[in-house]
Amino acid sequence: MMLNSNGMNEIVKILTIISTIFIPLTFITGLYGMNFQNMPELRYKYGYYIVLSVMAALATFMLSCFKRKKWL
């Protein structure tokens, strides 16, 4: 029963890490999906790519933090 519990804890830990990474990305995506007209970065030529690169950098930073703490 203890081995089963340890396996379940590892699964829950991985699911928590995945959700921790995707929650801020979902927030950013939801914010930009609201069709505001007063967002200045929507008028930039490369605004879409800037937001995508910020999201990728955020996910990479969070993954590196998890690896540094030896959670992955």
Rank of each mutant, 00 (worst) to 15 (best):
Tyr48Gly: 10
Tyr46Ile: 11
Gln37Leu: 02
Phe66Tyr: 14
Leu31Asp: 03
Met55Asn: 11
Tyr49His: 10
Lys45Pro: 09
Arg43Lys: 12
Thr16His: 07
Leu15Thr: 09
Ser5Met: 09
Ser19Leu: 15
Ala57Cys: 06
Met2Arg: 10
Lys13Thr: 15
Leu15Asp: 10
Leu42Cys: 03
Gly7Tyr: 09
Ile11His: 12
Gly33Phe: 06
Ile28Trp: 00
Ala56Lys: 04
Ile11Met: 13
Ile17Asn: 03
Arg68Leu: 10
Thr20Gly: 13
Val12Ala: 15
Gly33Trp: 02
Phe22Glu: 08
Lys67Tyr: 08
Ser53Lys: 06
Ser53Gly: 11
Met55Arg: 07
Asn6Trp: 07
Lys13Cys: 14
Leu31Glu: 03
Val12Tyr: 12
Thr16Ala: 15
Met2Val: 11
Thr26Ile: 11
Thr60Ala: 13
Leu15Tyr: 08
Leu25Glu: 10
Ile14His: 12
Ala59Val: 09
Ile50Ser: 06
Phe61Asn: 02
Phe22Asp: 05
Leu3Cys: 06
Asn6Phe: 09
Met34Ile: 06
Arg43Cys: 08
Glu41Val: 13
Leu42Glu: 11
Pro40Glu: 01
Ser19Thr: 15
Ala56Arg: 01
Pro40Met: 01
Arg43Pro: 04
Gly33Arg: 03
Val54Tyr: 01
Gly47Arg: 00
Lys69Pro: 00
Met2Tyr: 08
Leu58Gln: 07
Thr16Cys: 13
Tyr46Ala: 08
Val54Leu: 06
Trp71Gln: 13
Thr60Cys: 06
Val54Ile: 10
Met2Gly: 10
Phe61Gln: 01
Phe61Arg: 01
Ser5Trp: 04
Tyr48Met: 01
Ile50Thr: 11
Gly47Ala: 05
Leu42Phe: 04
Ile18Asn: 05
Lys70Leu: 03
Phe36Leu: 10
Leu52Tyr: 08
Asn35Arg: 07
Gly30Asp: 02
Lys69Asn: 06
Leu15Ala: 14
Ser64Trp: 01
Lys45Ile: 13
Asn4Gln: 07
Val12Pro: 06
Ala57Gly: 14
Glu41Ala: 06
Lys45His: 08
Phe61Met: 03
Leu63Tyr: 05
Ala56Trp: 05
